[in-house]
Design a protein around this nucleic acid. Structure first.
Length: 1096
RNA sequence: GCCCAGAUGGCGGAAUUGGUAGACGCGCUGGACUCAAAAUCCAGUGGUAGCAAUACUGUGCAGGUUCGAUUCCUGUUCUGGGCACCA
């Protein structure tokens, strides 16, 4: 009987399905094992041979564990929300739900073809309302939580409110250091808390919530009217269309993951992730410790910005008419303390540069006071209340408008009603109007307003440094271009240059800004900072290599100790102070901590390492700085301006977000046909007006959650996938617990893996799950790359030249479908039929053949190098495919797909088959007793395969199967007691052939299955064979014998030989004697079971 | 740029703690079976020299530690990955 793999595989796949072989129960006396693949996104392109690599590995492991007596949870489902489906909908008008469903069906068919043991009764899809109901529910739990730093745990908001009612926030400072109350304070007492109105209370609580709203940057493309993902932006231009992209602030949800930075770091110590994965996460979190130092700004003088110090204490800012200054100033201060409700609302949104513009409130211009002013853009913003409607006031208003116009101001007006109804619209209108205004006319004499020098009374900024010991080596300061002080402190002679520079930086990505170290850019602001200790004047620069989001957005430049600072100083000819003596050679910076400090005032003579603490202590003593732990990680942006994601389960009542009632979940996506964004920066949901606007005072969020949301907890849902009372029953969560083995690509290193770790930690804090880390062990499978083929077209001709001759012509390489290339030789007829353009193509051949070029690249449709697993399975069978994918190399390594080697694996399975089944006779297994040699082969295989499977070294397992099969074939072994255990060993790898042979053995009357292996109804539930040492034990070993480390001969020596016996035996050997050339042996090294070495 | 991983025959790879480098498979060469082919089987296969025994050489490159290094250390070159909205 032939090995008819196609029939066999179809038959058993069907049988497994009918018998529900892969259904897993939540209750079992067996130990549990949870084997999980990373959630796949069902893309329209379907699976290529690279995708199943991890699935095959996890499938083998799951089957292996089941044979070993575990209750194994091995589920599969779909991360079905996401951008590609939405983009497809925009381009083809097909609803994401429809294309996603189609894609899932294709995906499923491809998976089924490979014979995986998934329990499909547990399938989940993130886009299913029954699923995302619980995604929303968990989001609400996060929204209803805050992080108590004292106990390093999340607690309910009600707990926080109770604390506020008792002690205010004196025990729990605002997590966001920049936040301040309308009074300008950052602390409040219990009494004050009680006196706050609802709006302020909610605003304060928002500062603590683990899911919170704030203004954060997006990539905004005005021309496309949409927000773009980072990888849709290239060199500051949109990927589609090449339109300019700028950073824009939008009010969005964030998760306060920064509060968990320390716990996420600590958790890494107890989980089994690869070192590189831990490194990536550690870097991402980016914990460092050092000091935050306060630098005061010295205001530049108008007349001589670079000149000598001015002692002026009066503010330089002179928009106010001098005679009225004091009067209006008092008035302004008065008004600031008693803002109207709407003014306060606005101020919460406008302050602290949230809009990207520096806006002041109750500002005096001339003799007039405006509600808000953006002086960089010469714009004022008025909130028009009833107050302004009185005739007298109106007259005043008109005079003011006239005055402002004459002085080049643009006035923006909004009614109180508008502010109350839709503040978002007002804010986004302000942003867009301000964006369209030119920045302050630089040399306008008519204007009484100068863009700089103002408000500098007490102006200061903070820098974060890990090297406070180098404080006396500071030669310059650098602010991030986005730093809020930049425009304020820039002196007029420099403002044009700065403006230009800021424009340049706006179009640069962070990676570009960090990466290009050779290209040094920057711009002097004209301002000086004052050294906190020696009061030296330090020039303040702006440069793109400082990022606003990291630390304080400002650094102190220490050229002798930091290479980047050094290059900067050299490039701009800034004099360099040497504080490390000989350690600095004048050519390059030296980041040492071992130097003895010089030129460093009170730190002189100290080793840098020790000076760090001394410097910080002194700073704290003088109140110019403080000890500080810093994290590179920022809070996670959780809003997407997209349709195809989970809607936020919140309702805005008068712009204050409130959690939806749990019983109203899920909040389903409204039906929509047009998925283009609203053009205002809002997502497509803004077009569903009825859905968004619930009532006059109630609105929904038009954003949706990122795909990370559904994927942050799906592994919990598999434990109880159909529960409609809770996301998963506690007893199931307790039984299955952590994922024991998680297999997937390293591309998820920071996003998915950090967010799911975060969600589990929060659920753990809130008492829903008992574990703190979701994944006990993580394995990153490598990628299978494609092997592309190229043809070379002669420019402007429909003529193609073979690879070896292409250099004689001017050619362009074109990707050619790998399916019409045999090795490197192009099938010319197939090529002509491939595309109409090539029907008349002519060829220049070498040796009568057209030879293609080749390259290893990502497997991608656009490279025509995609191999569909279906075609491989059709030709060789699923078992061959599974084993070949494993045989290609180590699971974690990336490797190119090469179909050639698959023949060898296929041949192995045929050879394996022939151990059991004769060509004509059918089953040829006998009950002969096994020989010692056969038993040795079997038990060597059991040991090797068991150990290697446990450590995910599947490629060496395949080799081991081949070796065993080769030797047993040579021995003509057909013994049941050898072949039956061997079959079970193979079952995880090649389940179909194993099931077929197992069932043949079972149904054979003369050959009842061995009781010790379970005699189960399916090979899936057989018992894994037990390794027995006695069969592989040997009494002697053939040792390599080396003289001076070079192997010269072999000797068989008894394993229990003593050192002395070995020495005698070895020295008596002729070959050894020859190589010793009569010299006496210095030493004989004998390592038992390894080797012998004679040193002469 | 920063961080990480990797480099072994013509190819994919093996060598688990420093102990016979190249297991296993592909490819290639020769042979058996066959009218022929496919399939299957047998033998050989890192390089150089040699009929052979054997010798020398060999794990990206340059050094070092060691009786002994693919493995450990230092430096270096190249390749791949990550660096915050693809998933």
């Amino acid at each position: 009987m032939e090995y008819k793999f196609r029939d066999i595989e179809k038959k058993w796949q069907q049988w497994w399905k009918e018998k529900n072989i892969y259904k897993v129960e939540n209750a079992s006396s067996k130990p549990k094992c949870y084997v999980l693949d990373m959630f796949p996104y069902p893309s329209g392109a379907g699976l290529h041979v690279g995708h199943p690599l991890g699935y095959i590995a996890s499938d083998i492991f799951a089957r292996f564990k089941r044979l070993k007596g575990f209750n194994v949870l091995h589920p599969m489902g779909y991360d079905a929300f996401g951008l590609p489906a939405e983009q497809y909908a925009i381009e083809h008008g097909i609803h994401p739900a429809v294309s996603t469903e189609n894609n899932i069906n294709i995906f499923r068919k491809q998976l089924d073809n490979i014979g995986f043991c998934f329990d499909w009764s547990r399938e989940v899809r993130t886009c299913d309302p029954k699923y995302y109901k619980w995604t929303q529910w968990i989001f609400l739990q996060i929204f209803d939580s805050w992080f108590n730093r004292k106990i390093q745990k999340a607690q309910r908001i009600s707990q926080l409110m109770k604390i506020f009612g008792e002690t205010g926030n004196l025990q729990h400072e605002f997590p966001n250091e920049k936040f301040e109350l309308p009074s300008g304070k950052t602390q409040f007492t219990a009494e004050e808390w009680k006196s706050f109105d609802e709006r302020l209370k909610q605003e304060i609580l928002m500062q603590y919530r683990l899911a919170y709203l704030a203004y954060t940057d997006v990539n905004w493309c005005e021309a496309l009217g949409t927000v773009l993902a980072n990888d849709e932006v290239i060199n500051g231009l949109s990927y589609r269309g090449g339109f300019p992209v700028v950073k824009k602030k939008m009010r969005q949800w964030s998760l306060r993951i920064t509060e968990y930075a320390d716990r996420l770091l600590k958790g890494l110590e107890e989980i089994d992730f690869s070192e590189s994965m831990k490194d990536i996460q550690t870097n991402w979190i980016g914990k460092s410790s050092g000091a935050e130092i306060l630098f005061r700004i010295q205001a530049p003088t108008q007349s001589s910005p670079e000149g000598k110090e001015s002692q002026r204490t009066e503010p330089r800012y002179r928009t106010a008419q001098t005679s009225l200054y004091h009067f209006t100033k008092i008035l302004a201060e008065e008004k600031r303390k008693n803002p109207t409700h709407e003014e306060m609302l606005m101020w919460q949104r406008l302050k602290n540069n949230q809009t990207g513009f520096h806006i002041r409130r109750q500002h005096i211009i001339g003799a007039y006071m405006v509600d808000f002013a953006c002086l960089d853009k010469l714009a004022t913003i008025e909130i028009d209340g009833a107050y302004h409607n009185e005739p007298e006031i109106r007259k005043y208003d008109e005079a003011r408008t006239k005055f402002l116009e004459e002085n080049g101001f643009t006035e923006l007006r909004y009614s109180n009603k508008m502010v109350r109804a839709d503040i978002e619209k007002v804010i986004s209108d302000i942003i867009s109007k301000l964006s369209s205004l030119p920045s302050v006319p630089k040399k306008s004499e008519s204007s009484k307003v100068f863009p700089s020098g103002g408000d500098l009374e007490g102006a200061s900024f903070r820098v974060y440094t890990t090297r406070p010991d180098t404080i006396f080596g500071v030669d310059f300061m650098v602010l991030a271009p986005e730093h809020e002080l930049v425009k304020q402190i820039t002196a007029p002679p420099h403002s044009e240059e700065i403006e230009k520079y800021l424009l340049y930086v706006q179009g640069r990505s962070e990676v570009e800004r960090m990466a290009e170290v050779k290209k040094i850019t920057g711009c002097f602001t004209g301002a000086y900072a004052i050294h906190p200790f020696n009061k030296k004047r330090i020039p303040v620069w702006v440069s793109e290599y400082v990022l606003v989001g990291y630390g304080t957005g400002a650094i102190m430049g220490v050229p002798c100790g930091d290479e980047r600072d050094h290059k900067f100083a050299k490039h701009f000819n800034i004099p360099i102070t040497n504080i490390i003596g000989d350690y600095y050679n004048g050519e390059e910076a030296n980041p040492t901590k071992d130097a003895v400090l010089q030129n460093s005032d009170f730190l002189d003579g100290m080793v840098m390492r020790d000076a760090i603490e001394v410097a910080i202590d002194k700073m704290e003593e003088l109140k110019v700085g403080e000890r500080k732990v810093n994290y590179k990680m920022r809070d996670a942006g959780w809003s997407r301006q997209r349709y195809w994601g989970e809607p936020f389960p919140v309702i805005f009542r008068d712009d204050i977000p409130y959690a939806m009632d749990e019983k109203d979940l899920p909040l389903e996506l409204p039906p929509l046909n047009d998925f283009r964004s609203a053009g205002t920066g809002e997502g497509p949901l803004a077009n569903a007006k009825d859905w968004v606007q619930i009532s006059e005072h109630e609105k929904r969020d038009t954003n949706t959650m990122p795909t990370h949301a559904g994927a942050a907890w799906y592994f919990l849902r598999y434990m109880d996938p159909h529960n409609d009372k809770i996301f998963a029953e506690k007893k199931n969560l307790d039984y299955w617990g952590q994922v024991d083995v998680y297999i997937g690509g390293s591309e998820h290193a920071v996003a998915h893996l950090l967010y799911s770790r975060l969600w589990v930690k929060i659920l753990n804090d809130l008492g829903y799950v008992d574990f703190d880390e979701p994944f006990r062990k993580l394995i990153n499978q490598g990628k299978i790359t494609g092997d592309s083929r190229f043809v070379y077209r002669i420019r402007n001709k429909n003529m193609f030249v073979s690879f070896g001759l292409k250099d004689q012509y001017e050619t362009d390489p074109l990707h050619v479908d790998v399916n019409i290339v045999d090795g490197l030789e192009l099938e010319i007829d197939a090529f002509r039929n491939w595309k109409p353009d090539f029907a008349d193509a002519e060829f220049i051949l070498e040796n009568g053949k057209y030879i293609c070029g080749s390259a290893i690249e990502k497997m991608s449709k656009s490279y025509f190098n995609v191999i569909n697993p279906d075609t491989v399975v059709e030709k060789y069978g699923a078992d061959t495919f599974r084993m070949y994918e494993m045989f290609l190399g180590p699971l974690e390594a990336s490797k190119p797909w090469d179909i050639k080697g698959i023949e060898g694996v296929h041949r192995f399975l045929k050879k394996f088959w022939r151990l059991y089944v004769g060509e004509e006779k059918g089953l040829i297994v006998t009950n002969e007793p096994a020989t010692n040699e056969e038993l040795k082969i079997l038990h060597q295989a059991i040991k090797k395969i068991q150990e290697d499977t446990e450590r995910f070294s599947f490629n060496t397992c395949v080799s081991a199967f081949m070796i065993a099969t080769n030797v047993l074939t040579d021995l003509k072994c057909h013994t049941r007691s050898i072949l039956e255990p061997l079959l079970i060993l193979l079952a995880p790898y090649a389940p179909h052939i194993a099931e077929e042979l197992y069932q043949q053995l079972r149904s054979s009357k003369v050959l009842p299955l061995g009781e010790d292996l379970g005699g189960a109804s399916s090979v899936v539930d057989a018992t894994y064979p037990q390794f027995e040492e006695k069969y592989v034990k040997e009494s002697s070993k053939t040792y390599p014998v080396a003289i001076n480390g070079k192997t010269r001969t072999e000797l068989t020596i008894a394993l229990d030989a003593t050192q002395q016996q070995v020495e005698e035996l070895v020295l008596a050997n002729d070959v050894v004697k020859k190589w010793m050339e009569g010299k006496p042996p210095k030493k004989v090294i004998y390592v038992k079971n390894r080797m012998v070495n004679v040193v002469v």
